[in-house]
Design a binder for these strands. Structure first.
Lengths: 153, 153, 153, 153
DNA sequence: TTTT
DNA sequence: TTTT
């Protein structure tokens, strides 16, 4: 049966995106996103609880993330849950769950550091010139993974 | 900042719920849910990809799950992502991600086995009499976690 | 700023889809979907409240709806809210809100009538032969609007 | 059958909230929220399309909205669709759809006007003293409708 | 007008 | 380990 596997997150980045350029013009960006929930415990004290999420963004979307997202950025993201499993050296099953982001939009949060946004020059330097998007979306657009990418997952 | 951490799943149970009655009248039900996605690969062949999710349900909701859900049941669930982390014996960081279900509704899928639904007697036997819900929801209602439960997580 | 306008519905169809074939090979299917909520009022009585939604599905998705959905079908749908407004003959502002469905999946609900599913022959008769999908999705797949359709809305 | 009727919106307010204090300590806040979508048309031009939504917030949540939300505020909101219908003087069926907000969180967007947030004094003046919340949430918390309110809808 |  |  067709299923639904949908995640909606709104939070802040714990660090700048980590971007890797792979063979075949593939790109992946990894993000750490914190979602904080605040509630009152039974004694009436306000408690904050933060959950950290590993996000993975592929393709053209990853380049947008690289260009616009920074540590501290406030982000709305939609995606799906993916759990990798493997056996470690001790023969034990290991699991790691991440969110495959399919679309996101940057919100008003102010990123960390001096530049409130990386200059195109800067980020171009970190990647092959051929990877430069010909028509980059603006910073505050909803960008979507077209999923016509034939990535190996 | 207040965040959003929301998961929406629709799939089928891989096994009957595992229910544990804890001290202090707490109950937890653990479920394995499969969400299957079907798409065409680049050669035009239809491919099915199944993702397995660990669901955790607490309190009165867990009792409803115990009573009505079975291996094969089709389920719509909403909840949030929670990742537990700890150090194993080798001192390595270990992670396990689950979905804390906050509401669910059972869909038309036919559960496995002879009884299409566990009899109240059966499931009552597995738990302290005091835990019997005075006014159980019907099978196909949207049931919600009130979260006034002060559970330790 | 980029926004989010997302609707998630799970309910039953109040009638068969109404399908119209337009010029230029466009197709639109209109559905009426009921979502029922059940809760206890202050006197402890269980109350059911049903909300009716106007769904609109375009393109290839509409053809899938025509082929597989029937009065009574249980449906999970995602889409976005669209409100049309116009002035009536009295010069008053009129509004009508509908859900533009972008993907859906048919659930286990049993449709009405003798056939539990319209035969392809039947539904083909109602539309131009050229509109027949070359590779129709199966009934219980998640089908998505590609939105490369350049429709006038 | 239990259904799902869920709306997720992220956008900006077109005006300050309109708040009404009703008998029996009930409060309702009405908001106009714009969600903007941006895409490229077939000629490659970027097009912006804005959808306006009527939001309705009840009870304690309404008071938080009154206190913190302003024209221009960026808002994430969850709720459900409600359509009112009635007959007008000409005997015609009329419909009006709104979103009953069940939780929201204010994002980083800067509200319009001189004060970036209404002072408690200001907003207290507009309402009966008895309506003052004893322990107001902070501006950027996710606030939720408890729905134990027995409102007539 | 659906469903349980 | 589910489902179609």
């Amino acid at each position: 049966m067709a299923g639904v596997n949908k995640v909606i997150l709104l939070g802040n980045l714990g660090a700048d995106p980590e971007v890797k350029y792979l063979e075949g013009d593939n790109v992946v960006a990894k993000l750490r996103l914190a979602t904080t929930e605040s509630y009152k415990d039974k004694t009436g004290n306000r408690v904050e609880q933060t959950e950290w999420h590993d996000l993975e963004i592929w393709g053209a979307l990853a380049k947008v993330a690289e260009q616009y997202l920074r540590k501290g950025s406030q982000l709305y993201a939609e995606g799906k849950i993916k759990t990798d499993s493997w056996q470690d050296e001790q023969g034990q099953n290991r699991y790691r769950t991440k969110i495959r982001v399919l679309s996101f939009t940057m919100l008003g949060g102010k990123p960390d550091g001096n530049d409130n946004q990386a200059s195109p020059q800067q980020s171009t330097q970190q990647r092959p010139a051929s990877a430069a998007p010909t028509s980059a979306p603006k910073a505050q657009e909803m960008v979507s993974d077209t999923e016509d990418d034939d990535l190996p997952f």
